[in-house]
Amino acid sequence: MFQKSDGSWVWLKAAGRLPYLALRGVIDDPQSYAVIRRRLYAAYEPLFDLASGDAFWLGDLPEGGTLLFCADASKACALLLLGRYVDRDAARHGGIVQSYCRLVDSRLARLCQAAAISVRLEAIQAESALAGH
């Protein structure tokens, strides 16, 4: 992770201001990170020079949002929402928060199945990428 001048730690670095929502957690798997990393690389497209560890593209969302999964050798990980999450039918789905939770649950389940890992989310935090990429 990158340490910012205010002492906070963030997952991403970018050329300019890049706010995102991080759902932080750990990969709860007895395998070494090297083994887990190979499975993630086989299942998802890696993004280079964006994160302090590994970053994987999980897909674009309607209205311009993107989901990423980041992980590092300590098995710390995060599901990141860049941009906006919009659900025009949120009222029918119980509201925008419930709709977003269903999306996260679905994408995380797909990732865990594809990479044969278990992820335990522990915190939600708004972050801003380290500037100066």
Rank of each mutant, 00 (worst) to 15 (best):
G53M: 07
L21P: 12
G95P: 03
C112Q: 14
G95R: 03
A126W: 09
Q31H: 06
G95W: 04
Q113G: 12
I96S: 12
V86H: 10
R120H: 04
F69Y: 11
Y85P: 02
L61D: 12
V26P: 04
G53I: 01
A14W: 11
L111I: 10
C77V: 04
K75L: 11
Y41W: 09
L21V: 12
L21C: 12
W9M: 15
V119C: 09
G83F: 00
L121Q: 11
L50V: 14
R120A: 14
S8H: 09
A115E: 12
K4D: 12
H133N: 10
T66A: 14
A51C: 05
S8R: 15
L47H: 08
F48R: 08
G16Q: 11
G25V: 11
R24M: 03
L21K: 15
V86S: 04
A43H: 02
S5G: 01
G59R: 06
Q125D: 10
I27R: 07
Y85A: 07
D49S: 06
I96L: 15
G53W: 09
R120Y: 15
F69A: 09
E63N: 09
A73C: 00
A43T: 03
L68E: 02
P30E: 02
A73L: 03
R84A: 11
A114Y: 02
C112E: 15
F2V: 04
Q125H: 01
